[in-house]
Amino acid sequence: MKDNQKNKEKSTKRNTFYQRVARSIIKDRLALLGLFIVISFLFISILIALLGQYILPYDPIKMDLSSTLLPPSSKHLFGTDRYGRDIFSRLLAAAPTDALVSFEVIIFSMIIGLVLGTLSGYIGGAVDEVIMRVTDIFLSFPSIILAIAIAVVLGPGVKNAAIALTATWWPTYVRLARAETLRIRTLGFVEAAKVSNLSSYQIILRHVIPNVLPTMVTYATLDLGGVILTYAGLSYFGLGAQPPSPEWGSEVFAGQDYLVIAPWWPIFPGLVIAVVSIGFALLGDGIRDAFSKQFVSK
């Protein structure tokens, strides 16, 4: 009797799938650390993007030749560069572009991956053959080299860097979505949907995409750190935001000559890139665990 009542209470307070995933992440300490890093990164990015100059301790672009190459202190948290600009302010100012670029790249790659991958895997035949061979062509280049090549052709700049990255990033997502689709299409619920006269289009939308999505989201979170890293690579080569706009990668590049006399200049931007990438990786791991837990019955 009591059990029955308990069950009733439980069933009235039903949580959706994604709510339970969220709860599982909160229980995982490393994932929580990752979540903390990612959220602070996003929060800072949004804050800077909205309020810009008002909250930055110093103007990130204005030179001040009276205070060049100062070591970290309470006045300049990460020190100053050769032009007397506060490195901390410059790194903060660069956060919104990095966040925007990495999310753009991942989201567009996911959309392309979901559409092409599920079609390729579900319909098969000639469609599959064409999509996969095009994917193979893109995958046959090392991603950073292809990204640099495309960025060089398009010309430097944030938007072009994002396009170049997306162009190299999507094939993995197509592969992933296709592999998952191939697994899903043999399962009983797809057969049952066919028996119920659902069209291929309906089956892809109703059954295939929702079942591919958890894997894609997990992979994407793990992958965001990679995009940030690669974008830093592009901007290191001068293909991202153009000077004097601040950029994590270009900051490392500008500072590397001063590694001996002013180590804080290249090291702090490098640290920021590393911490943010690791944060995404930790969160991605947590999300993967949380998703896989949901499919084990109690």
Partner: peptide
């Protein structure tokens, strides 16, 4: 007007629905 019940109930029901 044909329907089916399959062997493995774990895979014949979509886990996301």
């Amino acid at each position: 007007e044909v329907q089916a019940v399959f062997q493995d109930p774990d895979s014949s029901l979509d886990p996301m629905l």
